[in-house]
Amino acid sequence: MRSMFQVRRTGATLLAVGVLSSCTAGADGNPPEPAPPVDTARTEYSAAYDDVVAALTRDVPQVEWVPKDRFPHLTEQPDGRCVLALAESLGEGDLYEPSGGLADLAALLDPVLDEHGFDPLSEVVYPDDGGDVYVTATDEAGWELTVSAYPPVVGISGPVDTDRCDESALDEG
């Protein structure tokens, strides 16, 4: 049995790992589409995120989603890419059991994700290192939406095109 320490991993860590891996190739294995400008990303990906949270709220009422207040924020990666962590919410309640161990989320979220240009949710990931159980969806620009189980977290992040990768770029528009 895994200890709670082994099972817990923050959503932000999952987002960072997912974005780092998803930005090197598009969902089809080809180079990703160009990163969108910050203002375009905020508009388009906020809509996708909001629709996913709305679907989770509607169809998994056991979990109440509370937005974290440190979002959005930008992080420059070692290779020079700028990643926008746009939004993240922490779920209060049990997401794992009512979602069939997250496996049932595909039927709920894939249509929503498709409307926003994302590929279907991944298979449920059970990390070998004892990290959190999660599912992800990516789009052609390398953006990734992650839903994790312990604690329930939903977040979205991806690369953006900006001349400056600091908080002042969030005012672009």
Score class of each variant (00 low, 15 high):
G91R: 00
A169M: 09
Y49W: 12
F71Y: 15
T162S: 09
E64Y: 07
Q6K: 12
W65P: 00
T10D: 10
A12Y: 13
G11D: 05
V19H: 11
D119K: 05
P36L: 15
R42P: 04
P61H: 04
D119I: 04
R8Y: 06
G173L: 14
R8G: 00
G93F: 00
E167C: 05
V63T: 01
D171F: 14
L105C: 01
F71N: 02
V63I: 08
G173I: 13
S22A: 15
P127I: 06
T57D: 07
V19A: 15
D129F: 10
M1Y: 12
C82F: 08
N30A: 14
T75M: 09
L84Y: 08
P34S: 07
W65T: 01
P98Q: 09
D69F: 03
A169H: 12
S89V: 03
D114M: 10
I156M: 11
G101I: 10
D166C: 11
E172Y: 12
L56C: 04
G131E: 02
K68H: 11
S21F: 07
V147E: 03
L170E: 05
Y45T: 09
A25W: 08
A35L: 04
D104K: 05
H73Y: 15
P61L: 03
P151Q: 06
A169T: 08
V153A: 10
V153W: 05
A54W: 07
P78W: 11
L74S: 07
V63M: 00
D28F: 08
A16C: 10
D51P: 12
T57S: 15
V66N: 14
A54F: 05
Q62F: 03
T40I: 10
R70A: 07
T138F: 13
P34G: 01
Q6P: 02
P72Q: 09
A16K: 09
S46V: 06
M1A: 14
T57F: 02
S89P: 02
T162N: 03
H73M: 09
V19T: 15
E97S: 10
S157R: 15
S46N: 11
V112F: 02
W65Q: 00
A85P: 10
A107K: 07
D161G: 03
A141N: 10
L113S: 04
